[in-house]
């Protein structure tokens, strides 16, 4: 079971310190809701946890300290959906399943699409999808490859009420499985979790 501990981390973007002195710990099955006004550094925190931004200071440790760095145990769902418009939904997901795979097997592409109510769209080019449907496909990759830490940046953007319910369901299942979730959000995601409030940077 994965456990994450951040102590006194600071992150800079373009020479400007966006986050500093941030500490938190996250146990298996826990969910951390990162809130705060625009520009508070929510996305920066998630990108830093995904290994996409270097830490200026502080440590981000995880136990068990296996060979895989934290970035390779994390799913990062950012603002961009990472879909190729000319490929079908199923082709996109098959590629992402292979690219993001870890030692453990994930769900099948069909099963993941069904979990997000997209089963009938599998053979449609991704460019034909609406913003909400693209978002659902981006979330479906959480299922096709199994990774213990989910880093979700505004996951419910563009999702309708039904899809928000599906998202809540897969997040609950992931936590029940011992997974960790860190979500940056303004809306309530329909799950309970500790809240980490980031202040606005001047």
């Amino acid at each position: 079971m994965l456990r994450i501990e951040a102590s006194d981390i600071a992150v800079e973007r373009g020479g400007r310190r966006v986050l500093s002195g941030l500490s938190f710990a996250l146990d298996a099955g826990e969910c951390l809701l990162v809130t705060g006004p625009n520009g508070a550094g929510k996305s920066t925190l998630l990108r830093a946890m995904a290994g996409l931004l270097p830490l200026r200071s502080g440590t981000l440790s995880h136990t068990p300290d296996s060979d895989a760095p934290l970035a390779e145990q994390a799913h990062f769902v950012g603002h961009a959906d990472a879909l190729k418009g000319s490929l079908t939904v199923a082709e996109n997901l098959t590629f992402l399943a292979a690219m993001l795979r870890t030692g453990e097997a994930g769900c099948s592409v069909e099963g993941s699409l069904a979990a997000l109510g997209l089963a009938r769209l599998a053979d449609l080019p991704a460019s034909y999808l609406s913003a909400g449907q693209k978002r659902r496909v981006a979330l479906a990759r959480l299922l096709v490859a199994r990774r213990p830490l989910w880093l979700l940046d505004e996951p419910s953007t563009a999702l309708d009420r039904a899809a928000q319910g599906m998202l809540g369901k897969i997040m609950a299942a992931h936590r029940a499985d011992g997974g960790l979730i860190v979500a940056a959000t303004h809306a309530s995601l329909g799950i309970d979790g500790r809240e980490l409030k980031l202040g606005a940077s001047s």
């Binding site: 190729k84 490929l87 082709e91 098959t94 590629f95 399943a97 292979a98 690219m99 795979r101 097997a105 994930g106 769900c107 099948s108 099963g111 993941s112 069904a114 979990a115 299922l143 096709v144 490859a145």
Partner: peptide, 17 residues
């Protein structure tokens, strides 16, 4: 939901994509 492993290695999948 059935568990499965992707049929291709990451690099083969990338090349095909």
């Amino acid at each position: 939901m059935t568990l499965y492993r992707p049929p291709r290695s990451p690099l083969a999948a990338l090349f095909l994509r």
